[in-house]
Design a binder for these strands. Structure first.
Lengths: 187, 187
DNA sequence: GTCTATAATTTGATAGAC
DNA sequence: GTCTATCAAATTATAGAC
C-alpha cells in the first residue's frame, strides 16, 4: 500500500544526507535533483530557493530528534539514565546513519548560512537544552542552574564527540566521550 | 622596520578568517584576493589550487595552537590546572578572534573537503589529544587510558562549546561548559 | 508536477604580457 | 609577483511548454 512517491520528502531526505555529510555549501540543487532522479527545475517547484530546502531539512530534523527522545519527565530522579538515553540518540545518528548531527554541521557553518537556516540550527540547540535541563532537574534536588550547566556540557560534549569521531574515523572516540560523561556526572 | 608585505601570509590570514567564519566551501579564491587587494590570478601564483590554501591554513593553525599551549609536562600532577589552561586557549580563539576553532569547522565538513584538507584537520585533533593526554597523565597516578578518556572529553566538550556558543550568540554558553568540565574532573 | 531551455553569475584555474 | 584576459564548468533560479 501507499507506494505513492512523495517527491517533497525525497528531496528533504537527499538534502539532509548531503548536508550532514559535507555541509550546506557543499551541495547544489542539481545534486539533490540527481539523487531523487528528477530535474533541478522540479526541485524549485517544491522549494523555491535552496535556503528553503535548508530550513525545511533543519526543521524536520529537530522535530524528529526531539520526538525520538520521548518525555523528559520520565527521567526525573535519575540523571545518569537521562544522559545515557540522550547519548543513545546521538549514537544512533552517528552509527545508523554514519553521519554527523545536522546541527553540528550547521552550527559550524553558522557564518556562511542564509539567516533562516542559521536560525533553524539555533532552535535545535535551544530545544535540546530545554529537554535536557528538564530531564536533569530532579524536582529541586539539583536546581535549574546546575541542571542547565550539566545539560550544556552534555550537549556540547556529544556534538563535539561526533565531529571528532567522524574526523578521526574512529567510533571508539565517541564512546570514550560518552563513558567520560557518565563517569563524571557532576554529582 | 620590516613593513615588507608578505602576500603569502596575508592570503593565509584572509583564508583562515573566512574558513573559521563560514567553512571551506563558503569562500572563493576571488574572495581571498579581494580581501588581500590583489587579483585571483596572483593568489594562484602562491597557491596553485584552493585545497593548497586550505591545507596550508590548517597546518599553520595547528602549529600555532599547539605552540601556544607550551610544555605539557608543566602540568603533571595538576589535572585541573591543565584543563583550565587548555580551555583558555579555546576561549582566546573564540573571544579574541570572535570565531570558531578552524578544525571544529573542518571536522564538521569532513565529507565535503579535499582529502588533504580533511587530513590536516585530523592531525589537529590527534596532536591535541596527545598534548592533553600527556598533561593529564600524572606520571602513572592516573594512567594513560583514563587520561586519554578525560582528554577526549575535554577536547570534544570545548569544540562543541564553541559551536553552541557561536550558534546561540552567547558566550556564557561556552563558560558554562568550561565550568562544568572543571567541576566534574573525573577524579 | 515535471520537463526543456536558458539566463545571469560565480567558480577554480590557466596563458601570457609586464 | 602581479596583472589582463579568458575559459570551461557549475551555480541558483526563472519562463513557459506539456
Amino acid at each position: 500500500m501507499s507506494e505513492i512517491r512523495n517527491t517533497r520528502d525525497e528531496i528533504l531526505d537527499a538534502a539532509e544526507s548531503m548536508m550532514r555529510t559535507a555541509g550546506y555549501n557543499a551541495f547544489s540543487t542539481r545534486d539533490v535533483a540527481a539523487s531523487v532522479d528528477i530535474k533541478a527545475a522540479s526541485v524549485h517547484y517544491h522549494f523555491p530557493t535552496k535556503s528553503d530546502i535548508g530550513a525545511a531539512v533543519a526543521h524536520r530534523y529537530t522535530q524528529r530528534f526531539i520526538d525520538s527522545l520521548g518525555d523528559s519527565a520520565a527521567f526525573k530522579g535519575n540523571a545518569d539514565k537521562a544522559v545515557a538515553h540522550y547519548a543513545d540518540a546521538f549514537r544512533t545518528a552517528l552509527v545508523r546513519d554514519g553521519k554527523l548531527c545536522l546541527c553540528a554541521v550547521l552550527g559550524a557553518e553558522t557564518g556562511g548560512l542564509p539567516p533562516e537556516v542559521a536560525a533553524s540550527a539555533r532552535i535545535f540547540f535551544e530545544r535540546n537544552l530545554e529537554w535536557l535541563t528538564a530531564a536533569l532537574n530532579e524536582h529541586g534536588k539539583r536546581g535549574i542552574p546546575a541542571a542547565l550547566s550539566r545539560a550544556t556540557l552534555v550537549l556540547a560534549s556529544l556534538e563535539g564527540a561526533m565531529i571528532l569521531s567522524k574526523s578521526l574515523a574512529n567510533q571508539a572516540v565517541f564512546e570514550r566521550v560518552v563513558r567520560g560523561l557518565l563517569l563524571t556526572p557532576g554529582k
